[in-house]
Design a binder for these strands. Structure first.
Lengths: 155, 155
DNA sequence: TACATTGGTTCGTGTCACCAACTAAATGGA
DNA sequence: TCCATTTAGTTGGTGACACGAACCAATGTA
């Protein structure tokens, strides 16, 4: 009965989880980055600048990203009232629907994965992961609850 | 004291883990895919076809991937003796060195992340993750110990 | 010998990332 | 007030990466 080293386990798990996200997203003809964009926008209406920070991308990358999403009718650029230079990015209805669909499917996938463990272990795993992430985020001064992945939380 | 849902936790964790891998790889001017390629080759000398299956990519994607890696002197194409159509891909010394370096740094990063948990929890988390992955792999008829991520295991 | 299959490459297209250069609006002195 | 500077965003160039389709060469098979 072989077992993975801690590092290999986490790496493997990460590839697996993001791989399923990518596959689900691809079923709807969006990339993983697009999906992340939609996820981030589910409960935010950031400027391009803020979006770049949120996604960890260069602002020019965000320009292109939003261009493509806008062309597909998933997001819209709204002029900012406060600052005429800046632009707010917000989900369209279609974008919100797509985010919800992909999010739900992804959630089902991960839930299915978790079900390879008995319920008690599931809760334990989730607690440990959560604890580790919260500690890590705190140590880096990151607001964990402001950079949630595509799944987001229910509105 | 907020806590993440199981799904969000795993998603967040996955972004974090692969993000650090990507950053480490970037320090050596390789992408995450290149790194994965090197990792897969650490204990294998597959044909292009096998490589495509291993990485889950189209064979044409692997052609390009290997092209770029070869141009950098990280891998080499070796003609197959058994079948004159096929090509074996193997690490060069430079590629092996790079794989080892990035692997070690990544391992240190993940270890540091795990150290946000007390030692006992660390072991528990790792056991749970490993159990889940092994069960998942078995259910899908996948040979888990033949598709390890870049970290690989010591030779 | 013919025909289909398999292994790889090449080509065209699209996404995505970065940097550098640029415009336009806002801001901060002097 | 006026001008230099900073800030927000876009554009253009380059490169990695992914895919499918079309293609050649070697292998199998009928």
């Amino acid at each position: 009965m072989p077992s993975l080293s801690p590092v290999d386990g986490l790496a493997q798990l990460s590839f697996l989880v993001l791989g399923t996200l990518e596959r689900r997203a691809a079923e709807h003809d969006v990339s993983i980055v697009q999906t992340r964009l939609l996820g981030v926008l589910r409960d935010r209406r950031p400027t391009m600048q803020e979006l770049a920070k949120l996604l960890g991308l260069d602002k020019s990358s965000v320009s292109g990203l939003v261009d493509r999403a806008e062309r597909r009718g998933l997001v819209a650029r709204v002029p900012s009232a406060a600052d005429r230079r800046s632009v707010l990015v917000s989900l369209t209805d279609a974008g919100r629907r797509l985010a919800a669909t992909v999010g739900a499917q992804f959630e089902a996938d991960v839930t299915a994965l978790l079900e390879f463990l008995p319920a008690a272990d599931r809760a334990r795993l989730s607690g440990l992961v959560s604890g580790m992430l919260v500690a890590h985020a705190a140590a880096h001064g990151v607001d964990l609850f402001d950079t949630l992945p595509p799944t987001g939380r229910p509105d």
